[in-house]
C-alpha cells in the first residue's frame, strides 16, 4: 500500500506553516570566499539544500552545512526558501530516504559554528544571519523573508 503511505506523508507536508516573527537580521546564503561561484539563484540554493544536486553549477561538489537543532534561524531559513515548516522538511527527508537518498548536509549546533566551518571549507555552503558575515565568506543569495 505504497500509494496510501505516500498519500499520508505528502499530505502532512502540506500543512500550513506557522507565522514567523520578522527580524532585522536577514538570512544570507554564503560560501567560502575562495569559491569561484559568485551568485546563485534561489532554485540552485533549493536544489542543494533539498538534496537534488550535491554540486555547484560549475560541477564542483557542494557540501551543505545545516543546523542540527530546531533553532529559529533554521525555521526561518526553510520557511523563506521553500515555504515549509521544519516538520515538513523532516518528513520530506524521511520520505525520500526510502529511495536510498540520504541527507548529505553536515550538521552543526549554531550559526556561528556554520560560519566558521564555511570559512575553512572551500566547497561548503550554508546559511547564516547577515550579521555573522566575514570577509572570508561570500554571499551568493540573500533570502527575502
Amino acid at each position: 500500500m505504497n500509494k496510501w503511505l505516500s498519500f499520508i506523508l505528502l499530505t502532512s507536508l502540506c500543512l500550513p506553516a506557522y507565522p514567523q516573527t520578522m527580524t532585522n537580521d536577514p538570512i544570507v546564503i554564503v560560501i567560502n570566499a575562495q569559491n569561484p561561484i559568485d551568485k546563485m539563484t534561489r532554485s540552485e540554493v533549493i536544489d542543494i539544500f533539498m538534496g537534488k544536486y550535491v554540486a555547484f553549477a560549475n560541477g564542483d561538489k557542494a557540501i551543505a552545512f545545516d543546523l542540527n537543532s530546531e533553532q529559529d534561524i533554521k525555521k526561518r531559513f526553510y520557511q523563506a526558501l521553500v515555504g515549509r515548516s521544519l516538520a515538513s522538511i523532516n518528513a520530506y527527508w524521511s520520505r525520500i530516504r526510502f529511495s536510498g537518498r540520504m541527507r548529505v548536509s553536515q550538521q552543526f549546533s549554531s550559526s556561528q559554528e556554520v560560519a566558521n566551518e564555511i570559512e575553512g571549507t572551500k566547497l561548503a555552503i550554508g546559511y547564516i544571519p547577515k550579521s555573522l558575515l566575514t570577509n572570508k565568506l561570500k554571499v551568493v543569495y540573500e533570502l527575502n523573508e
Binding site: N2, K3, L10, L13, M50, K52, Y92, I96, F98, S99
Partner: peptide, 23 residues
C-alpha cells in the same frame, strides 16, 4: 500522488518515479 510525483520528478529519482508509475 501529486506530492510524490512532484518530489520524484524534482529529484529526478528514478526509483521513486518507478514507484509512482507502478502505483
Amino acid at each position: 500522488v501529486s506530492a510524490t510525483t512532484s518530489i520524484a520528478s524534482y529529484l529526478e529519482d528514478e526509483e521513486l518515479l518507478k514507484e509512482v508509475v507502478n502505483g
